[in-house]
Amino acid sequence: MNNVVRNNSAGFLALPAILVVTIFLFIPFAVIFQNSMTIPSEGGFAWSVKNYTTILGDSFYWEIIIRTLRISLITTAAALLLGYPAAMYLYFSKSRWRRVFLFVVVSPLFISVIVRTYGWLIIFAPSGALNAMLPEALQFPIYKTETAIVIGLMHIYIPFMVLALNASMAKIDGRFLSAAYSLGASRVMAFRDIMLPLSRPGILSGTIVVFSVSMTAFSTPVLLGGSSNKTMAYIIYQKNILLANDHEGGALAIILLLLAMVSLTVFNTIGDAAARRRGGAR
């Protein structure tokens, strides 16, 4: 059997999947792009950037954009701060509890986001579990706040952070730390000089994943934040579903997509700069 013949004949097996992506990703994108760049006019549609200028000229939308960025940033930072020690536990633990811990971290991924969100809803609700367990003097309003959104999002997306960190820490040879200790480094030094720089790829990928899913999350901010803490996803829903405005709705979707892409570029740049600074240090 000739290799060349076999490969040529097998390559076309990818065709259906390629077609599905091409047709259902690129054509629909063209559709929303066209919708976002047109406005209804008599007898049809006219090209215009009015949808964008309306949105970007309105402080109402800016407030929502900034809230969305703020929530995603805090969520990502919290997920990193909490996820890093969790990944370290997975890295260092050799006991049988390690597997249990990993299972506990990973298994919520099998449960619908809506259910995990609802779990926080009945914890935070006025008659919910949190207030039931706190003495009256310590009770505080958390239901329908940004804090509630952040906690909910962080809980839902932290497994991604831990898995990303775990994947990059798994590549760190344990002997690097032994070597550092044998050369006299303290735990803090070994962490700062070895662990942290070598886990940077995981920090970067975990941050990027958590940030982008937090930024575009829909059901969690809606259920835990309510209408007084609208995020981008919330108004996209409002515009497209409740108001059926495809033009401004499309523009909002594209703005969100651009925002996400710009943020990721920023993260990547910061990550590269950190790597370069480290590499250049001598």
Binding site: F24, V213, A253
Partner: peptide
């Protein structure tokens, strides 16, 4: 993002 896929397919 899923929400973008949703809007694209919806429209």
């Amino acid at each position: 993002p899923n929400i973008i896929i949703a809007i694209m397919l919806l429209q």
